[in-house]
């Protein structure tokens, strides 16, 4: 629970400013996206999930694989 509070605290405290739609040009740049390259992200997450005991966090979990 303490971790959760730590994670959510910045959102509660952040002094978010009002950004008008026409002021969001920078935010829509490719380099500001959450996942810049779909294919590389898929593979990277799969490699981590097959070599570590934890996975997920960016969406609902997908199916498994028999990765050795």
């Amino acid at each position: 629970m303490k971790y959760l509070t730590g994670l959510l605290l910045p959102l509660m405290l952040c002094g978010c400013e009002t950004v008008q739609p026409w002021e969001r040009g920078i935010l829509s740049k490719d380099e500001m996206q959450w996942q810049p390259n779909v294919m590389e992200t898929r593979l990277r997450n799969q490699v981590y999930a097959s070599k570590e005991a934890s996975s997920g966090g960016t969406g609902a979990a997908g199916g498994g694989c028999g990765c050795n």
Partner: peptide, 18 residues
């Protein structure tokens, strides 16, 4: 409409696909 097109979900994580 413009707000919707440039919302904070610029990329929404879903099923690990951007």
């Amino acid at each position: 409409t413009l707000a919707a097109l440039t919302s904070s979900a610029l990329l929404l994580p879903a099923y690990n696909v951007a």
